[in-house]
């Protein structure tokens, strides 16, 4: 088992590298960082442009640039931005912001998603099932940026109704906030609710749909009938035998759910003014910055693969059939 997981990890590392290279190469090919410089009015002297080109290693072949970048990256130096800031200095802060959002969104999403899905399956064709199904569909059909905008709208109404700033929708803390630990916590939470809700809603809808169908599959299974035949009530059989088995396929979904989350997270950060990795990516592309793009890509690839690997681990934990292989 451990060997199986180790093997997967090696494979994933290779994929990570290739993916990062791909993004690096694509960015290096399509970006034109000195274009903006040239477009300045009056145009800067040729020497300035050449200096910038040399600084950004624009005239070297892309594979070589990648190897140089990677060599530094392994040692913790992800290079400098187009405007000559250190990426490594900013990186930890941005990762912290993104991870907080992602993890909270995932935990809330999976937790509520499973509960909603199971409840839907057990109460199939009742009103609550139809309602849950309908809302899942609506949320899955709403792009995250729209959902974020709508939530902002709702929060504004709420704040107006309450006559106080209950929910805040820009930034992750109030700039220059002063106060004790408790006040700081409240301030954080006020900032946290909307972005988390924005990404969690999609996750809940996504997981609940699959949990519902996994549970329905289990509802008709022979082993559930066996469990009832030996004297368990339907309810007990459902929870002890049904739910436990229906959780197994959710482990594999986890990896994909996380992928979804990353895209959604980018929008959320952007809309709510959280300076995380997603926000950085958009900024990097707007600035034609290869190093930022490659760094964020590496981060995303690592996240996707870690979630894939975790997915394998969960799967092995949940299903004895895999465990013993």
């Amino acid at each position: 088992m451990a060997r199986f997981l180790a093997r997967r990890l090696v494979n994933y590392l290779a994929l990570c590298l290739v993916a990062t290279f791909l993004a690096f190469a694509l960015a290096a090919l399509t970006f034109d960082p000195v274009g903006k410089l040239q477009a300045r009015n009056p145009p800067p002297p040729q020497a300035t442009i050449d200096a910038k080109r040399a600084e950004l290693r624009l005239d070297e072949p892309i594979p070589q640039r990648f190897v140089l970048w990677l060599g530094d990256a392994v040692q913790g130096d992800f290079g400098r931005t187009v405007v000559n800031q250190s990426i490594s200095e900013e990186l930890p802060r941005r990762i912290g912001v993104s991870l907080r959002l992602f993890l909270l969104g995932t935990v809330v999403g999976i937790g509520l998603g499973v509960i909603v899905g199971v409840a839907s399956a057990i109460r199939q064709y009742r009103f609550s099932d139809y309602a849950a199904t309908f809302f899942s569909f609506v949320i899955l059909s709403t792009p995250v940026f729209l959902l974020g905008l709508l939530l902002k709208y709702v929060a504004l109404e709420l704040n107006t109704a309450a006559g106080a700033q209950l929910l805040v929708f820009t930034g992750e803390t109030t700039p220059g906030f002063q106060g004790g630990f408790f006040e700081a916590l409240v301030d954080r939470v006020q900032h946290l609710v909307l972005p988390t809700l924005t990404i969690a809603l999609g996750q809940i809808a996504y997981y609940s749909r699959y949990q519902r169908s996994a549970m329905l599959d289990v509802l008709g299974s022979d082993f559930l009938r066996t469990a009832q035949a030996k004297g368990l009530t339907r309810r007990k059989a459902l929870f002890k035998h049904g739910l436990r088995t229906a959780l197994v396929p959710m482990a594999t979904l986890f990896a994909f759910g996380f992928g979804l989350l990353i895209t959604g997270g980018t929008f959320t950060e952007r809309i709510f003014g959280w300076y995380g990795m997603g926000d950085w990516l958009v900024y990097g592309i707007e600035q034609d910055d290869t190093n930022i793009t490659a760094t964020v890509t590496l981060f995303v690839a690592v996240l996707v693969l870690v979630s894939g690997w975790l997915s394998d681990v969960f799967y092995a934990l949940l299903d004895p059939r895999v465990r013993l292989r």
Binding site: L15, C16, A19, L22, A23, L26, A27, T30, G259, I262, T263, T266, L281, V282, I285, T293, V296, T297, V300, A301, V304, L305
Partner: peptide, 10 residues
């Protein structure tokens, strides 16, 4: 591994 959003954006 790469969300298609990311690739296309790049």
């Amino acid at each position: 591994v790469l969300p298609s959003f990311l690739i296309i954006a790049v």
